[in-house]
Amino acid sequence: MDRVPLNRSVVTERGAQLADATGFDSLSLAALARSFGVQTPSLYSHVKDLADLRDGITALALGELAANIGDAIAGRSKKDALVGFAAAHREYSTDHPGRW
């Protein structure tokens, strides 16, 4: 199996995927390291600690949600825009429960 080169972005994205699968509160650096086939200390070059990883996941989620909302409300106004805004939130929370 080829190892994925680790960087902050790769570690954060995989952490977000694990959060979606197991829950944000269940996320651990040990589980994240296992998913890459590395030891936990290998992650400390990319994230300071679990809180830093969670902050990164939160920032990732907010960016993704903002992009989804932008797409959903583009060209819409008033009630139609509000419906698109709500639908984007609902879809994101359904697709990414751990990030939500």
Rank of each mutant, 00 (worst) to 15 (best):
A19L: 01
S35I: 03
G37K: 06
S35D: 12
Y44S: 10
A81E: 12
A30T: 14
K78D: 13
R8G: 10
K78C: 06
S42I: 04
G37Y: 06
R76Q: 14
D49I: 08
I57F: 11
L29Q: 06
L62P: 05
E13R: 14
V4I: 14
K48E: 06
Q39E: 14
A31I: 04
R34G: 00
A81M: 08
A21F: 07
S77D: 15
S26G: 10
L43T: 00
E13Y: 08
L65K: 07
A16C: 02
A31N: 10
A30L: 11
L32E: 02
K48Y: 04
A67R: 15
S35A: 09
T12M: 09
G75E: 04
H46T: 08
A61E: 09
A59G: 11
Y44W: 10
K48R: 12
G63T: 11
A67W: 09
L18G: 01
G70P: 03
G70D: 12
D55Q: 12
L82N: 08
L18E: 02
L6C: 04
V10Y: 14
F36R: 05
A72S: 08
D55N: 11
R14C: 04
R34M: 01
A30H: 09
L29G: 02
G37W: 05
R54E: 08
H46Q: 14
G15D: 02
T58H: 11
F24M: 13
N68E: 15
A67C: 06
L43E: 00
L60H: 03
L29M: 10
P5A: 14
A51H: 11
L65E: 05
S42Q: 12
I57Y: 07
T40H: 12
T12P: 03
Q39W: 08
A21H: 10
Q17V: 05
